[in-house]
Structures are given as structure tokens and as C-alpha cells.
Design a binder for these strands. Structure first.
Lengths: 267, 267
DNA sequence: GTTGACACGGTGGCTTAGCCACCGTACATT
DNA sequence: AATGTACGGTGGCTAAGCCACCGTGTCAAC
């Protein structure tokens, strides 16, 4: 690992280790030692330690003095894949994801709300993909999403791809590296149109998530406003700095028991 | 900073730097250089770098090669204080926080739902504080919370303290170090009783947050089920690993404009 | 046979010394 | 005035080495 690259070695190493972690290890396993990493990747021990320390503060692994470093959680549980991709989230919950494409087209940045084009940091003449989709888990509609995607970053996006996992289209076909997303979560009532799409009664509770997704740490790739069925979806998050800093995870609720209904009906 | 202490030096240094960061620096400032820290705290440069790298992966500061390290955000914006404490959140939003204590008492762990006592990892004979509170920002009710607190960790808690900031009572009076909390966020409809407490129409949308708070990284301190008024509160979060790993932040909405109402009414 | 003291090897924690690529700036050159 | 260049400071990284800690296995004592 010569340091000719543009990015610092410890960042590259970081990604390598995170991949290796996701593929070859699972919760509770003993990870590679600093000295092993140092030798395997031809890096100094200090650099190996720095990369490991980074994974520690992300909550992926933990140090145990005098013993080694150990995997703290199922990494797929944490990976951006499962944070951003509905397809992966559904699979992780043991459900079959499908997509119903409502609309799909092209639009100029000058035509969208200024809030959107500002968040995407685009000039007025930029082009966007616009789409509305309904995501279903085991045939049950869970998400109704309205999304704008910067066309210049994935010009070859097709209608067919929009019917499946955008995450895969971005990563596999366009070679994009999804870094993460900024989300704002609010509680809303679904209006009749939205409720119909999600096959629930009008004025049902839902989560509205407004998000901007980023490529390579800073470059905005998409903007979305997404409605989640309140009885099917919940967000998990961990507050606080050390040892954790685990981002919020949206998860499909495994149980279909209507405890929320029970609560609401208990009035 | 001799290494006689029980905890690793870089962790102590980490806390020192985080404190210094919160007190003496603000967004955009240039932070201390590795060499300055190395000299000031009598630590090797490698250790200084490791501590800084930890702050970087928490999203507090960022490295700029050849220039220095810079503060990325208003630290209070990130600190556990403002993540966990409603009082601090309200102040940060420029609003005056007040509390209405509905109930306050003592209860045995054997009497509460098993879900609660399990999450708090308590034996059956342990004692808990139980309380219901309504939190207001500028006299507007925002939160209705039901909370259980492990009594052994804060035996001197009083009714008067429960009328104010529990966070302050814990940290200042009992010397506890709040490490963070695990939260689950869901969308619900408020039933009549809940809606009355929050002074909104029945069947208004709300966020239900079930959380377990921790002391010193692992020891559970409280369990809570909290209802947030949908029109007054939203959660911000950042997904993905590097450069960020910023936990979810619940924030009071500054604008009272009813854009959610507008959405829901547009059906 | 069981127990316990102790040495050994491996791990992360930490230091020291030093070189490199990068950045801004101040100064000299054109 | 515009351009180029040298310099000092910064984070990135390597190298070699010592320490405290941990588990384990050996071996002596009981």
C-alpha cells in the first residue's frame, strides 16, 4: 500500500477492513491483530491501529487490552447498504422486497422546488431524474417515495433499474460509492391519496423522512421525501459519542401485531 | 499525563479535548495542532493524533492536510447534553423549557412490565422511580413522557428535581456520567388522553420514542416511553460511517408554520 | 490428583525520532 | 503588477522499541 494515492492510507485501509469485516467475520469473532494487519497490508502498526480505532469509534469492533479486537455486531446490520437500501433492509428482515414504479422521468433543476435544488447544490440547467415509487415487503406497501436524482452522476439510469434497487444500480453499474444520507424524521397524517398508495385508511399515522444522499462523503446524489407506514416501520438510533456513534437505522417491524393500534384504540 | 491511570491515555485525552472543544472553540475555528497538543498534555504526537482522529470520526472536527484541524459544528449541537436533555434542546432552539409533573413515585421492579425491567437489567427486588411529565417549550406542550429510573443510581432524587432537568440532577447532584441512549422512533396517533395532555385534537400525529438511557457506556439508568407532538418536533440523523457518524438529534422545530398541517389538509 | 505460583508469548497502549507530501505565505524575480 | 520560488508549519506515515495486561501451560508443592 504505497502512499501515492490521493486519499490517506488509513482511510483506504479503513474501507478495506470494513469490507473484510462484512465478508469474513461475524459478531463476537476475533478480528485481525494490529501486527497482522500491519504485515498483511504493508502498513506501519501505528496506521493499522489508527484504522482500527476508527472502526472502534464507529462501534463495529472493540479493543480488549491484552487479548485482541473483537467484532461487536453483525456488520450488515450497520453497513450503509442496510441503512440506505430498502431492498437490503427488507431482506435483512426476512421479507421479499418489490417495487411499484408510479412515475419516472426527467426534469430540469430549474423546475423543482428551490429547497431541493439548493440541497443538491445544482446549477439551474442541471438535469434530474424524478420518480415516485411504492416499496412493498411481502406484497405489503410500506414506503411511498418521491425522489430526485442528479442525472450527471448516473446518466445511464433506466426505468427498469428504477423498478428495483437504486442502490445496486448506483454502486454496481455506475461505480458510485454511497457515503450516507442526512435525514429528517417527522410524524404526519397520511392524506387520502397517500393512504391509498399505502393501502391504509386515510388519516393513518406515518413517518415522513426528508433526506439527502451523498456520494464520496460530500457530493449530493439524491433528494427524497418518503412516507413510511407507521404500523410497519420504525427507526432505531443510538445517542452519544464514544464506543458507538451508531447512526439511526430504519427497520421493518418483524411482528405484525398491532400494538400501536392497540395503543391508539385504548383511548 | 502519566500512564498510571486505569484508562488508556488517548481516552482521557479524548475527553479533555472534547471538553476544551465545547468550552473554548466554535464552528469553523482552527483547533490545536497535533504538536501543540503533544506538548501541552505531555503526550506523544501519535497519541495526540489518535485522540484527534477519534473526534474526527465523531464528526466534531475535520483534518485538513497541510493546514490543521478545524471545528465542524457547534459542539453543544452534538453534545450528549443536547441529545438527551430536553431542557438543553429547548434552550438551543431559543425557547423556554418548563415542566409539568403529572405523577411521581416509587415502584418495585417486580411491578413494572417485564419489557422494562429486562431492558434495565434489574433484579425483581430493585426499586425504581416512576414519573409522568409534560415538557413545554414557551408554554406549548411538546412532550408527554412516562419514565422509570433506577433508584439505586440516584437515590436522592426528589420531586422538586423531577420538575426540572433530570439531566442536571443526575450529572450535578449524583455525579453520573450520561453516556447516551438507545431510541426507537415510531409514528402513532395520539389518543384522547394523550392529546389532551399535549393540547392537540385527538388522533393527531405524534412520534413515540421508546428509549433506554445509559450511564458509563453500559449501565442502564432509565427507561422511557415518550410522545412528541408531531407538529413541534422532528428528528435529524446522519446515516453512514466516515467523517460523521453523527447520532440522531431530536430538535424542536423553530418555525411554527404548519407545513405539516398544510400537507395533511391538502388531501 | 489437586492446587497454586510463575514464567512465557501475544496483544493493545504508548513513546521517540524522523521523513514525506501538502499548504499558505512572504519574498524575490520577471 | 504578475509570476515564480523558497520556506516554515501541518497532517500522513514509518520505524523500532518498551510497557502493562491477559491467557495458558508448565511445574513444583501439597
Amino acid at each position: 500500500m504505497a502512499h501515492i494515492e490521493r486519499n490517506p492510507v488509513y482511510q483506504q485501509l479503513n474501507n478495506l477492513l470494513r469490507s473484510s469485516l462484512a465478508e469474513d467475520y461475524s459478531r463476537g469473532d476475533r478480528f485481525m491483530t494490529e501486527r497482522e494487519i500491519s504485515e498483511k497490508y504493508r502498513v506501519s502498526r501505528a496506521t493499522a491501529n489508527k484504522a482500527l480505532a476508527s472502526l472502534v469509534s464507529e462501534g463495529l469492533i472493540e479493543f480488549r487490552r491484552g487479548i485482541g479486537t473483537f467484532v461487536r455486531r453483525d456488520v450488515i446490520d450497520y453497513d450503509v447498504r442496510s441503512l440506505v437500501s430498502f431492498t437490503e433492509k427488507a431482506k435483512a428482515a426476512g421479507k421479499k422486497p418489490t417495487t411499484e414504479l408510479v412515475t419516472f422521468g426527467e426534469i430540469s433543476a430549474s423546475e423543482v422546488e428551490s429547497a431541493v435544488s439548493e440541497k443538491l447544490q445544482l446549477p439551474d440547467d442541471a438535469l434530474l431524474w424524478e420518480m415516485e415509487r411504492i416499496r412493498l415487503a411481502d406484497r405489503v406497501p410500506v414506503i411511498y417515495e418521491h425522489r430526485y436524482v442528479v442525472k450527471s452522476l448516473c446518466p445511464r439510469l433506466t426505468r427498469a433499474q428504477a423498478c428495483g434497487s437504486l442502490y445496486r444500480a448506483w454502486t454496481d453499474l455506475h461505480g458510485l460509492h454511497i457515503a450516507g444520507a442526512d435525514e429528517v424524521i417527522r410524524a404526519v397524517l397520511l392524506n387520502t391519496a397517500e393512504a391509498r398508495h399505502l393501502q391504509v385508511p386515510a388519516r393513518s399515522p406515518g413517518l415522513e423522512v426528508t433526506a439527502v444522499g451523498n456520494v464520496d462523503e460530500q457530493q449530493p446524489l439524491w433528494w427524497e421525501r418518503t412516507l413510511y407506514r407507521g404500523d410497519q416501520y420504525e427507526f432505531h438510533t443510538r445517542l452519544g459519542p464514544i464506543q458507538s456513534a451508531t447512526p439511526a437505522r430504519g427497520v421493518l417491524r418483524l411482528s405484525n401485531e398491532a400494538d400501536i393500534q392497540a395503543r391508539s384504540a385504548s383511548e
